[in-house]
Design a protein around this nucleic acid. Sequence first.
RNA 1: GCGCGGUUAGCUCAGUGGUAGAGCAUUACCUUGACACGGUAGGGGUCGCAGGUUCGAACCCUGCACCGCGCACCA
Length: 962
Amino acid sequence: MTEIPKAYEPQSVEDKWYDFWLKQGCFTADPARVSDQRPAYSIVIPPPNVTGMLHMGHVLNNTIQDILSRKARMDGKEVLWLPGTDHAGIATQVQVEKALKRDEKKTKHDLGREEFLKRVWTWKDKHGGIIINQLKKLGCSCDWTRERFTMDPEYSRCVQKVFVELYKKGLIYRGKRMVNWCPASQTALSDEEVEMKPQKGFMYHFKVEVAEAPGTWLTIATTRPETIPGDTAVAVNPKDARYAHLIGQHIVRPLPVELPREQKLIPIIGDAHVDFEFGTGVLKVTPAHDKADFDIGTRHKLPVVEVINADGTMNDLAGADLCGLDRFKARKVASERLTELGVLVEEKPYENNVGFSQRADVPIEPRLSEQWFLKYPSVEASTKCVADGQMKFHPDRWAKVYDHWLTNIQDWCISRQLWWGHRIPVWSKQHIGWTSACNSDHAKVWAISATRKEKDFVVYADPELIGPGNTNKPVWIYVAVAPDNSRDSDQANFIKQIEALGFTQDPDVLDTWFSSWLWPFATMGWPEKTSTLKAFYPTTDLVTGPDIIFFWVARMIMAGFEWMGELPFKNVYFTGIIRDKQGRKMSKSLGNSPDPLELIASYSADALRFGIMRSAPLGQDICFDEKNVELGRNFCTKLWNAARFRQMQSTSPLRGEGSESRLGEAVYSTEAEIDAALLSSDDKWILLRLNTAIAEVSTALEEYRFSDATSTLYRFFWSEYCDWYVEASKAVLQGSDEKRKANTLAVIDFVLGHTLRLFHPFMPFITEELWHGMGFNDDLPGKQGGKSIMFAPWPKPLDEDELAHFGILPEDEQAANDKYKAVELGRGLKSTFNINKKVRFVLKPASELPAHEIEVLRILLNAEPLEVDAAFQPKKGTPAALTPLGELFLPLDGLIDVDAEKARVGKEVAKVESELEKVTAKLADTNFTSKVPQKVLDEHQQRKTDWEEKLAKLKVMLDALG
RNA sequence: GCGCGGUUAGCUCAGUGGUAGAGCAUUACCUUGACACGGUAGGGGUCGCAGGUUCGAACCCUGCACCGCGCACCA
């Protein structure tokens, strides 16, 4: 016989069962099994970045999804938890670029686009599996046979198809606009990718002379003097009496210094945008580098002068002083020049909000550029489905945030100046003027297209430029190329032909979110009407962080309505954000995030799961503390040992000979019938507590209250089952009544079997190990838990018939509670008198007690002996406690300090008197008695009676002390 | 500026009108036959502040303070 390990040893157990689950196909969803009796349950994973590493946020998020999936399996549903990763355009490209620079001292341009992309794919193949394997370590029951990546060929076809459809509908357009430009990544970003951060800087006040009125100076306030060379006007509010008369005149721009005066004259314009209470009421207008200024510029047809390059350095238009400098260095130099010119009036510290690139963490540069934009589709349906409760957010306050965003959205800039991603499926060719050559190209494209099976393409030229009078302007012809779903070669052919006509593909790629918004259906085989899609779409739950409510959730909802005509999920659960003990968000840069895999190695996956769930209340951020994981581990150990205790009690090895069990060689039957006639008050109590626990956990899970569910499990198993029931059951198990023993074991098995199942979604590994190790799977059909606990039915509370069969009444709980109360009081006495050995107790019972109850009391009190004597006459000074079962004495034969005991009881009397006073006063108050409901009144009456009785008895005790 | 959370024991948090709770930490005792990753007993809170409603408020209402988050933004 191998030695039974004292503590649960998780590593080998976890690997063993995960392999088993995979080999048995336990996670694989089969649409063919879905029926009315076996409804579908589905979740799509929020795809982690393919090159990412598991962090605590993933642990939280995926543990929740796993709990939901496993619970649904136990509910008899056909479960699909669809996993995968996304290509994370910027993040991945930046990583590969960094490695390239580090290892080969090369840039992506040195390699060229094609070669660089090869490197990214190599990188992806090398690192892409990491996070997937980490999820497996955590125990995630994803259907890995359906793992998807947003750059898979089939997925890419979906992205192209969607692009072309939106283009055909006129929702996608190309435009020259002010965009959020990230000078570090050198790409445009969407509004959502810009994060406003307060920045300490300076407010510079400088003066400019009015050209038409020498000697008249205006003072301008700015935080960005380096953009002065790009100013093409100064604006004042036309209603501002101070300046209105100057509108139409000009000022002399101070920079660049070397320009002749006449080239530095810019007009004073009137624009209502200017707030005359802010700054000096005079605004410098830099249309090329500020969104609001651009709008002013448009209104007044101002020239747009760019002075900053794409990489954030100044160009030659910024003047000799600034040219080539970084924008922040240039700011300093510009202020120095202003000082030298004697026009800098003031430079004072100033804090303002500056937009930062979320990815690169550098200030955004508003920049005019040509980009592709999308007018969001299906906005109305998306707004409505949440507003009217068709789709539910948990917690629902996020619905308001969602609604607010949706009603204020601007068009989405979807193009990115990157190489890694879905390349925009548009080919274009430029002509000068709308000439016959245009018409000819147009016609040729249509002709080529006729050979395609699907005409998912569009030929487009800017209609304003078509026609006479535009003979010198550039005209672009765009061809958006959709994939042919049946034949890849068709698309390739088509592209080859249009490229032969001189069309070239747009160099940009699409925003990563433009692919992930299709996730719920593109992963299920769309646009084919696959059986998976039919069975599992719309999905049931989505679990994600509120930080991507706009990026992802909202857009998925729109995509769902747009292409499936239906919402993509019925419930969205928003997790909290994991913070460290100081309340800071966990991040790589702060280095305050523990490595989940290390936590798993030290504490086990189950411990990590249980710990994090226990500390993750609905809708609240989570303050992570490794103590929680330690608690999870301790809990696993407790569960393990409780199981071990059960096995050590059994004397008769039964079926299952030869079965292997880490708990020991013998496997014992769990089939024993519970004999209702033999149930003790403790048995009934634990069965009732189990009922309560099942109900509480089930409800908590239905309402996504995971921390409440774990609290219940913790309380039930540790406090109720182990601390009370197991200890009480020792009265039987250490006795000699074999029939009672067998019955107690049957109750224990019943409780353990249910407990393991309740725990399974939270702690899949240890529960599977014990389920098999203790033989709970024996004789069960495979679909009912014979193969794995994950298919065992979710526990149901005993119903009325079953309770009646066992002869259990609701009030049975009280009998055991009274006994446990007596035990606590008796232990209190021992503790008060510093007795830590077995000791004699005498109970003067309030009513007759069965021998079994007395034996339980004796064991729990650790009494030797426990005498029951209705006529007991205690010696003077005998410590005693009033218990629901009667007076409990601790006869110490003069060993005690009578005065100390008197003081102790006296203290108790004082407490009871004060409580009695309070309740008596209340009941004497007619204001109270006349207005309070009868139920409350009764409660107070009862409380008063109880305190009175207690007080009387305490006084008798005090008298007895002399 | 607008919106959303939060403020209860040393810490992390439960607690939707009727006797203030849990876990951790802490103190004392206990290596007892499942478990020291354990057991038993204890100490510890004017429930952020000020008003109001009510017989009664941690809980409902109003205002304020502080912490955190989101949106918008004035150069």
